Computed example of a mutant assay.
Amino acid sequence: MIRGIRGATTVNENEEDVILKATEELIHEMIRKNAIRPENVAQVIMTVTEDLTATFPAKALRTLRGWTYVPVMCMQEIPVPNSLAKCIRIMMTVETNEKQENIHHVYLEEAVKLRPDLSII
């Protein structure tokens, strides 16, 4: 079965190292909570809010061993007024035997506000 696994986090600054560190932390937590293996990932879509322009968050994924051939795409979120600022979102499309209710979506930092119902640690 193919499932989507969501993740999101926020940063305080529009700086490359800050964005990459936060993205890497988010990716590692998504992998850990869902036992994700790169060979089971069809694609990864990453978005950032319009206030994050210092780097592509996909660079963080590219540093992980085994993820070289996983297709990754970055794009900008729709700039909805009053939406969460400095936010990085990830959608992984993964082959898994887990039921939807057993998928662990990961929301860190201020991003817990996006889905408080799924942000239980």
Rank of each mutant, 00 (worst) to 15 (best):
S83D: 14
V80F: 04
T10S: 06
T68R: 15
T47S: 15
T68I: 11
A58R: 06
Q76T: 14
E39H: 11
Y107H: 02
C87A: 03
A58W: 03
R65I: 14
N14K: 04
A22H: 07
M73W: 06
L61M: 14
N12H: 06
I5P: 07
A22V: 05
R37H: 10
G7Q: 11
A42L: 14
E24I: 01
M30N: 09
A54Y: 03
I2C: 00
C87M: 09
V72I: 15
E39S: 13
K59Q: 15
M75T: 14
T96C: 04
M92W: 03
V44A: 12
M30A: 06
V70L: 09
V11P: 00
I78N: 12
T93F: 01
E98P: 00
K113F: 07
G4M: 03
N34M: 03
I27F: 13
T63P: 00
S83W: 05
E109A: 10
I36R: 09
I90A: 10
R37L: 10
L26F: 04
A54S: 14
R32T: 00
E101K: 03
I36W: 08
K59V: 12
Y107G: 00
C74S: 13
F56R: 09
R37C: 03
M92C: 05
P38E: 12
N12G: 14
P57E: 07
V106N: 07
T93W: 02
P38I: 08
D117A: 03
T49D: 01
N14F: 02
Q76G: 07
V72R: 07
I103E: 05
E13F: 07
F56N: 09
M30W: 06
P38V: 12
V11H: 00
I45P: 00
E50F: 04
A8M: 04
I36Y: 09
H104T: 11
R65T: 15
V11C: 01
L118G: 01
I88T: 03
P38C: 06
E39C: 04
A60H: 11
V18I: 14
Q76H: 07
I45A: 10
S83P: 01
K86A: 08
P57G: 07
T68V: 13
H104A: 05
K33D: 06
H28R: 10
L61I: 15
A60Q: 12
R62V: 11
E29R: 07
V11G: 00
K59R: 15
K99Q: 12
T63D: 13
C74F: 08
Y107T: 05
E50T: 13
I88Q: 07
Y69G: 05
R37K: 13
C87V: 08
L20W: 02
M91T: 10
K59M: 14
I5K: 04
F56G: 04
A54M: 07
T63W: 09
E109I: 01
I45S: 10
P71V: 12
V106A: 04
Y69D: 15
H104R: 13
A22T: 05
T53C: 08
A58M: 06
T10N: 00
E13K: 08
L108N: 05
E101D: 06
L61N: 11
